[in-house]
């Protein structure tokens, strides 16, 4: 579904990501692990079109997308849930969700998706007229995911969904991702919280200072304590 080949990314003259390759197959949950500053967010922002790669190719559903605009990618079924959730704090919950469906012009579709979103997230329906900024961290993460689901993406990309959340909420989030995945959505995840992420992952890549240093099945990497210590610090 997604092939990243020999991609190099930089800001100005500084290269942040060096010649990395990885791929995501349809239906998988893939995790990219890495410490702070390893270049994880840079990779994701490049995939979704916010940033342009210097070299290499990115293919999505067999189409070259390294020059595509974010809106085109959203149209083609790719969605990013950004780091820190980035809820619009002065938009109501409802407005946040509707913004997620910005490219969808069909009112009927919006209506039915809204319906299923509220079924899945009853808390959000309770709070739909509240400002986004008044929600708790966990609720904001739900909102950010709900917002992304409004276009029924085929590939959902999440940038550190566990960041800043209480452990019990993190568990909820990952359970939700598992559930979303089982409904047919491919999931690409970037995380520092290796343990919970690896539990639900089919495969994982380990990223260190802009290079992929390890690749394997989720279980394998999780069970290999040495690797975990060497590359991921405390797990």
């Amino acid at each position: 579904m997604l092939q990243v080949e020999n991609v190099t990314i930089g800001y100005g003259k500084t290269e942040v990501v060096h010649n990395i390759s990885f791929h995501v197959k349809k239906g998988e949950i893939i995790t990219i692990l890495g410490a702070n500053g390893a270049g994880k967010s840079t990779i994701l922002n490049t995939i979704v079109g916010l940033h342009q790669a210097k070299e290499g190719s990115i293919r999505f559903q067999d189409k070259e997308i390294s020059k595509a605009r974010p809106d085109q990618l959203v149209q083609n079924g790719m969605r990013l849930v950004p780091e820190g959730r980035q809820i619009f704090p002065q938009h109501t919950v409802m407005e946040n969700i509707l913004l997620g469906a910005y490219i969808e012009k069909n009112a009927k579709k919006i209506h039915s998706r809204l319906h299923s979103i509220f079924e899945r997230f009853p808390r959000l329906e309770e709070r739909k007229n509240q400002m986004g900024g008044t929600l708790s961290g966990g609720e904001q993460q739900m909102l950010a995911i709900a917002r992304a689901l409004m276009t029924e993406p085929s590939l959902l990309i999440l940038d550190e969904p566990s960041l800043g959340l209480a452990p019990i909420i993190v568990g909820e989030v990952f359970a939700l991702l598992k559930q979303i995945s089982s409904s047919g959505v491919t999931v690409l995840l970037v995380e520092q919280m290796a343990n919970s992420a690896l539990k639900i992952s089919d495969r994982a890549y380990v990223l260190e200072t802009g290079r992929i240093v390890l690749e394997g099945r989720g279980e394998e990497i999780r069970n290999n304590a040495d690797i975990a210590k060497a590359y991921l610090g405390n797990v």
């Binding site: 916010l50 809106d71 959203v74 969605r79 950004p82 980035q86 619009f88 938009h91 913004l99 276009t151």
Partner: peptide
């Protein structure tokens, strides 16, 4: 309106607005 929401979104977080598919 949809347009108005997008304007407010762009003024608050232009990049986040872009990943919503807003140009």
């Amino acid at each position: 309106t949809n347009f108005g929401r997008a304007v407010r979104a762009v003024s608050f977080r232009p990049d986040t607005a872009r990943i919503m598919g807003i140009r």
